[in-house]
Amino acid sequence: MTAEGKDNIAYKYRNYLVLERSLSPNSVDAYTKDMAKLLSFMQDENLTYRDVTLDYLQQFVAQLYDLGINARSVARIISGIKSFFNFLLLDGYIEADPSELLETPKIGLKLPTFLTIDEIGAIQKAIDVSTKEGQRNRTIIEVLYSCGLRISELTNMKFSDLFLDEGFIKVEGKGSKQRLVPISETAIAELENYMHYRKQQQPKKGSENIIFLSNRGTAISRIMVFHFIKEYAAKANVKKNISPHTFRHSFATHLLERGANIRAIQLMLGHEKITTTEIYTHMDKEFLRQEIIEHHPRNKR
């Protein structure tokens, strides 16, 4: 759909909120901002309105949590998204509402789902690593968990971001902010196993430096990771509703449970809005690595 078409729908949706739903100016502004968040996600995924499915919307919601948005705000955004798709359905832009089964978080309950160490192990055991796709997928899961990465940080990871001899990877997070994150020996071993297959691939132009490739030779997409994680969880009989973000949350939860410094965890997750240089001016990077070595279960021998 063209930019002009999207602008036209946005205009019509705002009129729908004002004229048909009789919402207050503040509510109209909130709903249109929620729509803008969704449109930005759709643009990143190269989606039209008709392409959006429940799985895509669940990935969108997972990213909201990844940004640190609380459950109450997520519930409000989902309400806005449901309103928008209801409008699209009523006006004939789509034939079915993909948000119909999208669940709203229960306010005041526990934080987003995390996995136990045994559940993570079961998911990894469900992967056939004798194939290049299997080894790639197992490596992706291990790096997500061992380093606490956002899915976008993983899919954009380049060979030039690896400093494995030093035990770190460079990560570019939100707002192009960079940080160094310690990487476990287990994740390094999985990466080395995957490199055997990666060297045999022919990347498309522009993807030569990307680590995790699809079979087409381009950077693996976030939705592809979302789907195979769901598939392996089902094979492992893990009943929790998980996404790539679940491994990031598990990373932080397991470190906290084992007494890691909360400041170190915040820095490793990239929640502080300061540059890598500023981070390591105030906190020695070897201390961050030691927090991982001492507290992350992947480093227990």
Rank of each mutant, 00 (worst) to 15 (best):
residue 2 T to A: 13
residue 2 T to D: 13
residue 10 A to Q: 14
residue 11 Y to E: 08
residue 12 K to V: 05
residue 15 N to S: 10
residue 15 N to I: 07
residue 17 L to G: 12
residue 22 S to L: 09
residue 22 S to T: 01
residue 22 S to F: 11
residue 24 S to P: 14
residue 31 Y to Q: 05
residue 31 Y to D: 01
residue 33 K to G: 12
residue 34 D to C: 07
residue 35 M to N: 04
residue 35 M to P: 11
residue 35 M to E: 08
residue 36 A to N: 02
residue 39 L to P: 05
residue 44 D to R: 06
residue 49 Y to E: 09
residue 50 R to H: 08
residue 51 D to Q: 06
residue 52 V to W: 00
residue 53 T to L: 00
residue 55 D to N: 11
residue 60 F to Q: 03
residue 63 Q to R: 03
residue 67 L to C: 10
residue 68 G to H: 13
residue 74 V to N: 15
residue 75 A to T: 12
residue 79 S to A: 05
residue 80 G to D: 14
residue 82 K to N: 12
residue 83 S to N: 07
residue 84 F to R: 01
residue 87 F to H: 03
residue 88 L to D: 13
residue 88 L to Q: 04
residue 96 A to W: 02
residue 102 L to R: 05
residue 104 T to N: 15
residue 110 K to R: 05
residue 111 L to P: 07
residue 111 L to S: 12
residue 118 D to K: 10
residue 129 V to R: 10
residue 129 V to Y: 01
residue 129 V to A: 04
residue 130 S to N: 12
residue 130 S to T: 14
residue 134 G to A: 06
residue 135 Q to W: 15
residue 137 N to Q: 02
residue 139 T to V: 08
residue 140 I to P: 04
residue 145 Y to R: 01
residue 147 C to W: 11
residue 148 G to H: 02
residue 148 G to L: 03
residue 150 R to D: 00
residue 159 F to D: 11
residue 163 F to K: 00
residue 165 D to W: 01
residue 168 F to R: 00
residue 169 I to Y: 02
residue 175 G to C: 03
residue 176 S to H: 06
residue 179 R to A: 15
residue 182 P to T: 05
residue 182 P to C: 14
residue 188 I to K: 01
residue 189 A to G: 05
residue 191 L to N: 06
residue 195 M to C: 11
residue 196 H to I: 13
residue 196 H to F: 08
residue 197 Y to N: 12
residue 198 R to D: 12
residue 201 Q to G: 13
residue 207 S to Q: 10
residue 208 E to R: 00
residue 208 E to T: 09
residue 209 N to D: 15
residue 212 F to P: 01
residue 213 L to N: 08
residue 213 L to I: 10
residue 216 R to P: 01
residue 217 G to T: 14
residue 218 T to S: 02
residue 218 T to F: 05
residue 219 A to G: 15
residue 220 I to P: 00
residue 228 F to V: 12
residue 230 K to T: 13
residue 232 Y to I: 00
residue 233 A to K: 04
residue 234 A to N: 15
residue 236 A to T: 11
residue 236 A to D: 02
residue 239 K to T: 04
residue 240 K to R: 10
residue 240 K to V: 09
residue 244 P to R: 07
residue 245 H to R: 11
residue 247 F to G: 00
residue 248 R to M: 03
residue 248 R to S: 10
residue 250 S to W: 04
residue 251 F to T: 00
residue 251 F to L: 02
residue 253 T to Q: 02
residue 253 T to H: 11
residue 257 E to Q: 12
residue 259 G to A: 15
residue 261 N to F: 06
residue 262 I to C: 15
residue 262 I to T: 11
residue 263 R to N: 08
residue 265 I to H: 01
residue 266 Q to I: 02
residue 267 L to T: 09
residue 267 L to C: 10
residue 272 E to N: 05
residue 272 E to W: 05
residue 272 E to T: 01
residue 277 T to M: 01
residue 278 E to P: 02
residue 280 Y to R: 00
residue 284 D to F: 01
residue 285 K to H: 06
residue 286 E to D: 14
residue 288 L to G: 03
residue 296 H to M: 04
residue 297 P to Y: 13
residue 297 P to E: 14
residue 299 N to H: 05
residue 300 K to W: 07
